[in-house]
Design a protein around this nucleic acid. Structure first.
Lengths: 201, 201
DNA sequence: TCCAAAAATGAATCTATATTCATATTTCGA
DNA sequence: TCGAAATATGAATATAGATTCATTTTTGGA
């Protein structure tokens, strides 16, 4: 029926617009992206955007919702209840990375928001941090404290893990939740890779 | 001398403005923050901002520069060349967290408060992801595959580590750099915590 | 083919905000 | 204490961008 085709076309248009908008939001942030730009990229008029979404804000929420939906579907295809947990874990990680690769989706618009054109407020600090950590890991491998491993990867992961924990804890109220976090990170991510039982000096 | 006091005051004003601006930028993004707001928060007039910084963009760069400077100083105080590398690593992590706590804590809380009106595109996806991962880790502990550990912490760290790697790789050009990342994450962060040598099924 | 209904368009409107600058206030040496 | 120089102020200006809506174009049934 005609109504069917109309609905289908409408949905196609929605998808195209969401794709274009996501790309722009990721690259330029929410405020940094204009409806004009989105319209141009998706090859529609500005007015059209407003026939499909009540507002820019709303368009943004649609992107969120679609991302969640896709992710849920992926999970459903990848894990069932009697997969052994660690196998399932690997599958889930794999699915997440696939998602990130194909959809560019697991990127923070919020972060991009701080990138005016290429400037993230704490990027320079992070880079400095990374360099230090990596350097120390290299030395630890050189002294034989740590087994040989990809120090760049480990440094990246340490940074990310640390940031995630900070962010997570900062949203709570607890007094000084940071106190032993560095120790626990060492314990979970570094000490398991000791060569000998003890640290050289 | 008079010139001295003037310079000192000027510097104090600069610091106050940078503090206010950083807080707002982190909470609302660069574009989301107005010079008006910065002025109000720092308790100066808008015009004053323009006597100290040629433009908003420039103000932002000053924040970056200051952050790097602070971090460099902290590192210098914490590590010297003959500290054993793994001890130094712990020190650096500790310093990083202290920095995060004292300089960022308040800011992050503000971020959290604004999450209602959140502008983070993938927060919902991340939460979903986290829940899955944690759930699987819990099961792995329950089956005895993994030694008892703080699964929430490990899940947070896995997420952060994964994101950091994705972000890091996404800025490069390489073809499909993601392929074996999930395996390597498992190897570095999960497998070391196996109870027995093997995974249950 | 023709026309009314539906959809799409983009110029015009309305706001929000970066930047300027005429004016007011403060400072400090004489 | 006084007033010129230095500072600070915030209303006015300029501009970008979200939203609207009168007009044009497309659609599909008669």
């Amino acid at each position: 029926m005609t109504e069917d085709r109309r609905a289908r076309r409408r949905q196609e248009d929605v998808e195209e617009i969401l794709d274009a908008a996501l790309e722009l939001f990721v690259a330029q942030g929410f405020h940094g992206t204009s409806m004009q730009q989105i319209a141009e990229k998706a090859d529609f008029s500005v007015g059209k955007l407003y026939t499909l979404f009540p507002s820019k804000e709303d368009l943004f929420r649609s992107i969120q919702a679609r991302g969640v939906q896709e992710m849920v579907t992926i999970f459903e295809n990848v894990v069932d209840d009697d997969t052994p947990p660690l196998v399932a874990l690997l599958n889930v990680l794999q699915a997440g990375f696939d998602f990130a690769t194909t959809k560019r989706g697991i990127i923070r618009v919020e972060v991009a928001e701080r990138l005016g054109r290429a400037m993230n407020a704490d990027r320079p600090v992070r880079d400095l941090f990374m360099t230090r950590i990596r350097d120390l890991l290299d030395r630890a491998v050189a002294t034989g404290d740590l087994r040989p491993l990809d120090t760049h990867l480990l440094a990246t992961m340490l940074m990310g893990a640390g940031e995630a924990v900070v962010e997570e804890l900062a949203t709570r109220e607890s007094a000084d939740p940071y106190a032993d976090i560095p120790d626990r990170i060492m314990e979970l991510m570094v000490l398991p890779h000791l060569n000998r039982g003890e640290v050289s000096r």
